[in-house]
């Protein structure tokens, strides 16, 4: 198990492999980063917070994907958070309670795993996907999931902790892991160190 790239996004900045890539200059930081990165992808504007976060994280990781452009099936998504799609859920409830019109375009984002669909569409990845709800980021848990995924025959795992509800504590931490012969006993410790460094930036 080898981490071949990682990134982190929060309302203050965006990072790739430990390096600060962007600093937020506007309150709407996701739109801010999207504009700064000059990405041409009009569907971005329609996405919910979770999908926007994961989409930008995926873009920050673009240089780590170089060796897996041929991969269609053997890349699995393993994502998790605590609050599911809470922000969109509340907006959908408002659409029928306050605006008196249940909004279909909000409803389709009231599931956390929609973000994996967005990434699959963008890259034409047909691999396995799963979304977990955890009380907090758990490196051991991700470690187990990745081990299982590789034993099932996958070659890469794109993992993400996307806890975003519109709060200053929001964060999107993503890491790409490749299968390797070398057993990495310290995998979960490494993962915790990486995330803690980002959190303390």
């Amino acid at each position: 198990m080898k981490i071949i790239g990682h990134c982190y996004i929060n309302p203050r900045g965006a990072f790739f492999n430990g390096q600060n890539v962007l600093i937020a200059t506007e309150e709407n930081y996701l739109k801010n980063y999207f504009s700064e990165l000059k990405i041409d992808y009009s569907k971005f504007y329609k996405m919910d917070l979770l999908s926007k976060g994961a989409f930008l994280g995926d873009y920050l990781l673009r240089n780590s994907y170089k060796d897996l452009l041929h991969v269609e099936n053997e890349l699995q998504f393993i994502f998790a958070n605590t609050s599911s799609s809470k922000e969109t859920d509340i907006r959908f409830i408002e659409s029928y309670e306050r605006k008196k019109n249940p909004s279909p375009s909000l409803f389709v984002y009231t599931l956390p795993n929609i973000l994996t669909g967005e990434l699959a569409i963008k890259h034409k990845w047909f691999g396995e996907n799963i979304f977990y709800i955890l009380t907090k980021f758990d490196s051991e848990f991700f470690n187990d999931q990745i081990v299982m995924s590789f034993l099932r025959g996958n070659e890469y795992c794109l993992c993400g902790w996307v806890e975003m509800t519109g709060s200053p504590e929001d964060e999107c931490f993503m890491f790409l892991v490749a299968k390797s012969e070398v057993v990495n006993e310290n995998f979960s410790n490494n993962l915790n160190e990486i995330l803690n460094t980002y959190r303390n930036e």
Binding site: N73, E118, A120, H123, K124, F126
Partner: peptide
Amino acid sequence: GASSNDANHIS
């Protein structure tokens, strides 16, 4: 068992 994404549309 296994899973697979359509990579086509979110809904």
